[in-house]
C-alpha cells in the first residue's frame, strides 16, 4: 500500500474517533427536578409487580416490599441493595437513583424452580447507556461498511 492510499484512511479514522467520542461523551440534558417517590413492589413466584419501574435520575425512591406467597428477596443490580421479605411482614427501604440505566432486581432467596429467573427491571431515565450503545452499534456497522468500500476483503 502506498503513502497516498494511507492518508485518507487516517483522516477517516480521526473522524470515526471523533464520532465515537461524541456518542460516548455528549451530555444528555435533563429537565427534571428530583423528587421523592413511593413505590410498592409485590414479590410472588416468580415475578415482581410492577415488573418494570421507570423513575428519573436523582429521585429518592421509598420502596415498600411485600411477599405474597413465600419468602422472597430483592437484590437491585448496580445499587447492591439486598432485602429479604416474608409474607405478612413488609420491608421498607429508601435509595437515591443516582445512576442512569437499566438495573435488574432479582430474587435473592431461593423460592422455587424458576427462582434464578425471577427478575424485574428498574429503569432510571434518561437511559443513557442504551442510547449510547445503540448509537455506537449504528456507527460501528456504518464504519465497517464504509471503511471497506475500496478494500479487498478476501
Amino acid at each position: 500500500m502506498s503513502e497516498n492510499q494511507r492518508r485518507p484512511i487516517t483522516a477517516r479514522r480521526v473522524i470515526l474517533l471523533l464520532v465515537v467520542l461524541a456518542v460516548l461523551l455528549v451530555p444528555i440534558p435533563t429537565f427534571h427536578t428530583p423528587h421523592s417517590r413511593d413505590v410498592v413492589i409485590d414479590a410472588s413466584q416468580f415475578e415482581y409487580s410492577p415488573p418494570r419501574l421507570n423513575i428519573n435520575r436523582g429521585d429518592t425512591v421509598n420502596v415498600t416490599l411485600n411477599a405474597s406467597d413465600v419468602v422472597h428477596g430483592f437484590f437491585l443490580d448496580g445499587y447492591e441493595i439486598d432485602s429479604r421479605v416474608e409474607p405478612g411482614i413488609s420491608q421498607k427501604f429508601t435509595f437515591t437513583a443516582d445512576r442512569s440505566g437499566k438495573f435488574r432486581y432479582r430474587c435473592s432467596v431461593a423460592c422455587g424452580p424458576l427462582h434464578p429467573f425471577m427478575i424485574g427491571e428498574l429503569v432510571v431515565g434518561p437511559n443513557e447507556p442504551v442510547w449510547r450503545a445503540s448509537a455506537l452499534a449504528v456507527v460501528a456497522a456504518a464504519a465497517v461498511l464504509l471503511g471497506a468500500r475500496k478494500r479487498r476483503m478476501a
Binding site: 411477599a67 405474597s68 406467597d69 409474607p87 405478612g88 411482614i89
Partner: peptide, 19 residues
C-alpha cells in the same frame, strides 16, 4: 403476631394479609 398471624390477618390486623 407478624410471623404467625399477619399473612392472613394483615400486618395491622385489618384482615388484608397477602394470603
Amino acid at each position: 403476631f407478624a410471623k404467625n398471624c399477619a399473612a392472613c390477618h394483615g400486618e395491622l390486623g385489618a384482615g388484608d394479609g397477602p394470603a
